[in-house]
Computed example of a mutant assay.
Amino acid sequence: MPSGSVVAKDIVLGASVQLTGPVANTGRYYRDAYQLAIEKINAAGGVKVGNESHTLALKLYDNQSDVNLSVRQYTQLVSQDKVDFLLGPFASNFALADSAVSEKYRIPMVQGGGASDQIFSRNFKYIFGTLAPASNYFGSTIEMLKGLDPAPKSVALLYADDAFDVSVAEGTRPKLKQAGLTLAMDERYSTNATDFNSLLSQIRSKSIDAVLVAGHETEILNFVRQAKSLAVAPKMYSFTVGVPSEDFRKALGNDADYAFGMTAWLPSADLKDRWFGDAAQFAAAYRAKFGYDPDYHAASGVADVEALVQAVETAGSIDPEKVRDALSKVKIDSLYGEIAFNESGQIDLPQIVIQVQGNKLVAVYGANGKIAQPKYPMPSWNAR
């Protein structure tokens, strides 16, 4: 090394993620996405701040799927570990609590794990989110419902009692009404519920046509298994999570067939990216490194890192306030889509309706209408 040269210090990103506990299966997407993004950016020369190149480093804790522990860990990241910027946890109730730490200490947090409208309704200045609003998660699904033949006459809305799922339900009700669909069941259930038998019995007794479920992956696995055991088969069911995940489809096998879901992201070569080339190349690199396919959680996690890097480079500084101001103006193409935050700090990407058709995941409905023919109505379990 030439005499007198200075090694630029690392820019340290801190996060607390669910690596153990009930939602670890989704939490790992964020750990893996953060690591892969940081490796890729460092390999390409790191982050340019003025005339200096900095490498990125990650300080990561396991919150064990415990919100209180997560808040303590974010406080430690900022006050003791002195990280430069924050990346988020998975799940809206975590992001809701943890973002209060970033706001208190005035350190930007970019998170792609919490979509609840509540997170962004508090006039916080230091929280930015790369998931579209939870209130519109079923928006494209409801548009699709209107064009199905035979049209569903009655709809059940089931949702867990956490911040994300409550926001989904609050946004879904007026959309169903606007679409002229009858909400025949509107039921809230406990987060991490394992018994859906009474709700399924109501679905059968009320002859519900379409069932919309906002919940977590483990809840939805239980819901589908119990629907089969009770032989409850409405014309369709759609879930906020699970369907895009390879693990979900493996866990259910043939029983996942016909399930509708949603995603704001598919690994298309059309989504160009500064570091990975495009989303298809990212998906291949992710699979090669971690042995499983990324879904929108992983793509969103990478977008968090990229947005922060872009803001640091635009600001020409690692001063938290200057980077916050740069984040509010970020507008970049990424493997996840265009990243541009609104005044509340959230982005808006339309949800693509997807369906398990045999052993394939098929995009069936998007922002511009029908993409492919959905398999509808769903047959009874014994007719499959």
Rank of each mutant, 00 (worst) to 15 (best):
M1G: 14
M1H: 09
V6K: 14
A8W: 09
I11C: 03
I11T: 00
V12W: 00
A15G: 02
N25S: 14
T26F: 08
R28M: 11
Y30E: 04
R31D: 04
I41H: 10
K48C: 11
G50E: 05
T55G: 15
L56F: 04
A57G: 05
K59P: 05
N63Y: 00
D66W: 08
N68H: 10
L69F: 11
Q73D: 02
Q76M: 11
Q80W: 09
D84W: 00
G88Y: 00
S92Y: 00
S92L: 03
A95I: 09
S99Y: 05
R106E: 15
P108N: 06
Q111H: 08
G113W: 01
G113S: 00
G114L: 04
S116V: 05
N123G: 13
A134I: 03
S140R: 08
E143L: 08
D149Q: 12
P150K: 06
A151N: 10
L157P: 03
D162W: 02
F164V: 06
D165S: 13
V168H: 04
G171Y: 14
R173G: 10
L176H: 12
K177P: 09
T191I: 14
N192A: 13
S207R: 15
A210Q: 05
A214T: 04
E217G: 03
L221D: 00
K228L: 10
V241Q: 09
G242N: 04
V243M: 05
S245G: 13
E246Y: 14
R249L: 13
D255C: 07
D257W: 09
D257F: 09
L266P: 08
S268F: 08
D270E: 13
L271N: 02
R274L: 15
R274N: 12
G277V: 04
A279K: 01
Y286V: 02
A288T: 10
F290W: 04
G291C: 10
G291H: 03
P294N: 08
Y296G: 10
H297I: 14
A307P: 02
L308D: 01
V309H: 02
V312D: 01
T314D: 14
V323D: 02
K331A: 14
I332M: 08
L335Q: 02
Y336W: 11
I339T: 01
S344W: 10
I347F: 08
P350S: 12
Q351K: 12
I354H: 02
I354N: 07
V356T: 11
G358N: 13
N359D: 12
K360D: 15
V364C: 05
Y365P: 04
G369L: 12
Y376R: 03
M378S: 06
S380F: 09
A383F: 13
